Amino acid sequence: MSTMKDLRVDTERNKAFAQDLNRRVHAYLNQDGKSPYADFRYYLKAVFMAGLYWVPFFLMLFHVGGTPLFWISWILMGFGMSGIGMNVMHDANHGSVSTKQRINKFFGASMYLLSGYVLTWQIQHNHLHHNYTNHIGQDEDLETRGLLRLHPGDKWKKGHKFQAWYGPFIYGLLTLNWVLVKDFSQVARYNKMGLLEKFKTTVNKEFVKLSFIKALYIGVFLGLPMMMGWAWYSVLLGFVIMHFLAGFVLSFVFQLAHVVPEVDHPTGEEIKGPGAWQVNQLLTTSNFAMKNPVLTWSLGGLNHQIEHHLFPHVSHVHYPALAKIVERTAKEHGLPYFKHSFMLEAVAAHLRFLNDMGKKPATA
């Protein structure tokens, strides 16, 4: 049986797989007037997710429904926030909504509703995560400052033996961390790495923009409710509830794609050459619940992470159709296509992996 390393270094197979896959996907996207960009389904969903976020906010702001609706509103906004992140922001910041960059930028700016920052997200996600998927030390999605061990090559700490229990609660802090801490530290770090220059900007310019956007966000979602008469402690708690729900959903969905036992977790140097990038995406990514249309709609197609990683500039509305092509092509070339039939099955696999990574390695 071929190992992951064997599959990576088979350059002839890598090249043939990439060529066949690209030819078939492009043929599908070019038939019957299709395009790789979004269609009406994306825009309708964008309106729905925006409503799920803004309608409860304004109802709460003007005391409609009193105290009960105040708390319900923050909960609905949490799901609206995660919905915007997965269904609207994600496609737009990959440039897959439209050929017109101003439209991508408009919808991509919905990132600010998640308390995040477009530039740092694009560097971490588009540049580092997509180019170096699951590569320790390069894919920053695996970086947790020691709170969790998400890769066999990561340093083990005693506290990690409980991470299968406390990990999901850490996930809920994702967007709260964005509010005041992560984006500022990333701007400073990416400047040292020379990435800001690559993106044609400067650290001073980004700090000014970032400070303004964060102040505006805090003013709207904390300041306005207080000004409208809600107690500061209630507003603060509601704000935390909203962010915890959004962070929990967003983190869990992305972890189910890469932090599961069956996918590859590379520790050596990156294999290069024709098709190597495509094979790396295939080996380090897993799908789940592909036959569940409700879940696919709700998660912005991110249960089809294999297709997203292979074709990040294609809108998520096309992923279910592309999945059939990708799976068939992978099997023809003797390559694995990792998937879980149900979401709960994927959740169980992720928790099992967290538990395994929490055990003390023999060499530790």
Rank of each mutant, 00 (worst) to 15 (best):
I84R: 01
L335V: 09
L237V: 09
Y112H: 14
K100W: 04
S286F: 00
A18Q: 06
P152F: 04
N292M: 05
Y53A: 06
M4Q: 11
T363E: 15
W156F: 10
Q122S: 07
A330T: 02
L322W: 06
S251W: 06
V64Y: 15
I213F: 08
P312T: 03
V326G: 14
Y43P: 08
N93V: 04
K214F: 08
A276H: 12
D154H: 11
K34A: 13
K200R: 12
H90L: 08
A346Q: 03
G108T: 04
E197D: 15
G108D: 09
A321Q: 10
E332L: 13
F221D: 05
K324L: 13
L283S: 04
S298T: 14
V249H: 06
N104Y: 02
A46P: 03
K200Q: 15
E140H: 09
R149W: 03
N355P: 00
R8N: 04
D154W: 00
M77Q: 11
S234C: 08
T363A: 14
Q278F: 07
A16T: 12
I271E: 11
V179M: 15
L114F: 04
N355E: 14
I271W: 05
K182D: 12
S251H: 10
F184G: 01
G334Q: 10
G300P: 12
M89C: 05
H129S: 01
L59N: 01
G301L: 09
N30E: 12
G95K: 01
V187M: 09
A346M: 05
L128G: 00
V235Y: 14
Y217D: 08
F58I: 04
I136L: 13
S185G: 00
P361R: 08
D10M: 04
